[in-house]
Simulated scan of single mutants.
Amino acid sequence: MKRVWLCRGREIDLSSPVIMGIVNVTPDSFSDGGKYYDPQRAIEHGFRLLEDGASILDVGGESTRPGAPEVSTEEELERVIPVIEALADAGAAVSVDTSKAEVMRQAAEAGAIIINDVYALRQKGSLQTAAESGCGVCLMHMQGVPRTMQAAPSYQNLIEEVRLFLKERADAALAAGIAAKSIVLDPGFGFGKTVGQNFELLARTQDFLSLGYSLLYGMSRKSSLGAVTGKASASERVVSSVAAHLLAAERGASILRVHDAAEMREALLVYEAMKNYKELK
């Protein structure tokens, strides 16, 4: 059966894994902070990600790395709206990575069709705003807040607690009028989890699929990958990022949120060839 993500009337085909390319319009993101802070450079980077194989562009104006400071609504809007407008006007499927209701609203007006929220629409006004926008939504699990989430992550039962949280947020979205086909879930790799807990999320992807929604995994260049590979610099974690996302895809994840679209696309071509070998000469 064909799986789709319904986003403001646009259907994104999730029958095979799709790539969500990261466009950070920030001076302080953990991997590429400042590199695409200038709007024009961010726009050019977005187009390059599309050429490299991304199907969705996730534009964010506030870093959610551990210890990141908060950004005002006005500053976040100044960062992301020009980038969203330019990419959406060119036909790109644009996601806005934000937790603020006003940023969600203006981003949708600028052409965004997806809201990707690390707070899973728990901030004031965000649930209603998302519902009114008609956007597709990604609801993520996070223990604590970005500033302190990695201080001392603790769970009695990691999988059950994350699963219950995601179900509760999906139910809240449905109750607010968001269509089931518009909802995607994210277990929150790196958001209030230890290294071992992050890899448990990856190993047990099927536990989250049983909720009945498509899954997004965002593990690109994260420190847990560096912890097991010995790569201290985020820019050195391209290979491990591709490997982690390929494992997620094999386990059923539909959307892979990455910095390195070209490398991810190449890996997925090999993966799809393995699955569809009967069609090859």
Rank of each mutant, 00 (worst) to 15 (best):
A110Y: 06
G34Q: 07
V71A: 01
V80H: 05
K100L: 05
D32I: 12
D52V: 09
A101N: 03
L50C: 10
D58P: 02
F47M: 11
P69V: 03
E70K: 09
A112N: 07
D97F: 00
V80T: 04
P66T: 10
L87T: 14
I113E: 07
E109K: 14
D38P: 05
A112P: 05
L50W: 00
G34M: 08
L77G: 13
I56P: 02
A42L: 07
S99F: 01
P39I: 05
R48C: 04
T73L: 05
A92M: 12
H45A: 12
R79P: 10
I56Q: 04
D58K: 00
M104D: 07
F47D: 05
V80I: 08
I84C: 09
V59R: 03
A110T: 14
E76I: 04
E102W: 00
M104S: 04
I56N: 04
Y37V: 03
G33T: 14
R79E: 01
E70A: 13
E78Y: 00
Y37A: 15
A68I: 10
D89F: 10
P82Y: 00
L77E: 06
E102Y: 01
A93M: 12
I43C: 08
I113T: 12
E78L: 13
H45M: 06
V118E: 06
I56D: 03
S95K: 04
S72D: 01
S99T: 10
V96D: 12
A90H: 08
I56E: 03
G111H: 08
A88C: 15
A93H: 06
R41L: 13
A110L: 12
I56K: 04
A88R: 13
V103M: 09
R65Y: 07
D117W: 00
E85A: 15
R105C: 07
G91Y: 07
T98H: 01
E102H: 08
G53S: 06
L50R: 14
V59E: 06
E74M: 03
Q106P: 04
P66W: 06
G61A: 04
A90F: 10
A42K: 09
D117A: 05
V96F: 01
P66D: 11
Q40I: 08
E62Y: 01
A108C: 15
I115C: 11
K35V: 10
G60R: 02
E75S: 13
P66R: 06
S95P: 07
E109Y: 05
N116A: 03
E74H: 02
T64A: 12
L87K: 09
R79D: 05
K35T: 09
S55M: 03
N116V: 01
I56V: 13
S63P: 08
G61D: 06
D32A: 12
R105N: 10
E51Y: 00
I114H: 09
E85Q: 15
G111C: 13
M104C: 10
E109A: 15
D89C: 12
R48K: 15
T98S: 15
L49P: 08
G33F: 04
T73E: 11
Q40A: 13
A108D: 09
A101I: 02
E76M: 06
L87R: 10
L77N: 02
E62F: 02
